[in-house]
Design a protein around this nucleic acid. Structure first.
Lengths: 110, 110
DNA sequence: TTGATTCATAACTAAATGGTTATATGTCAA
DNA sequence: TTGACATATAACCATTTAGTTATGAATCAA
């Protein structure tokens, strides 16, 4: 997993409109117009958000006639998930260690 | 969990320098100078990144004399983790559904 | 074939981001 | 008490982001 890809994934997820789009897509594929009408925003703005999601690999587009159907790519988010899962283990340990230290200090005082 | 907080958390994680800082902090607390010297960047730049991480709740700062010690807050990342975990379940289902549909179409043709 | 629909793209704007250098503030140590 | 150290803040800059409107291109349907 390279850093730039993680930048793109986390960056794509950092916007509520895009998260809303992913939520909508979790209930089924949608075309661009459907996405635009669900989110109070112009169609070009939605197309831009789709580019961001696509760059992150979070969605795939498929043209059928004049419509563009969009669906999620469940693989992509796994990189982000893995990153958080990996480090949260160490963060918890780190936190517990500080906790234990403060505890021992307190006990010494008594 | 509110949307703005998720914006901040994912936004904070979308930068490789900040992820590097969190990685460093997973090995123990550090002061600002230590963080600055690990990442080839000026001290003010690091202070800015710390503000972003702090706004997201991912770190806590504690002043001891003239030094500012920084440690991770393992709770904050859980919101991001929960969001991804929640939706990735639906995304996988969605993906499988499309897959099954394409499969059935293929079988009908035969 | 014409008109409507679907989407992409261009051009623009305001605000946010990520960096810099310079400087101010507070603390420690000699 | 003075000088060095640790950090914060201000001012600035370039780039990116998130939106807009206007328009172009492809496709469908009457």
């Amino acid at each position: 997993m390279n850093q730039e890809h993680l930048d793109h994934i986390f960056g794509a997820l950092s916007d509520a409109t895009r998260r809303g789009m992913l939520e909508q897509l979790s209930r089924g594929e949608a075309n661009v117009s459907a996405l635009a009408s669900s989110h109070e925003m112009s169609q070009p703005a939605i197309s831009k958000h789709l580019k961001v999601l696509e760059r992150a690999g979070l969605i795939r587009k498929q043209r059928r006639g004049r419509e563009q159907f969009v669906r999620v790519n469940p693989e992509a988010a796994k990189a982000a998930q893995a990153w958080i899962d990996h480090y949260s283990r160490y963060w918890a340990e780190q936190f517990d260690a500080v906790d234990a230290y403060l505890q021992s200090k307190k006990e010494t005082k008594q």
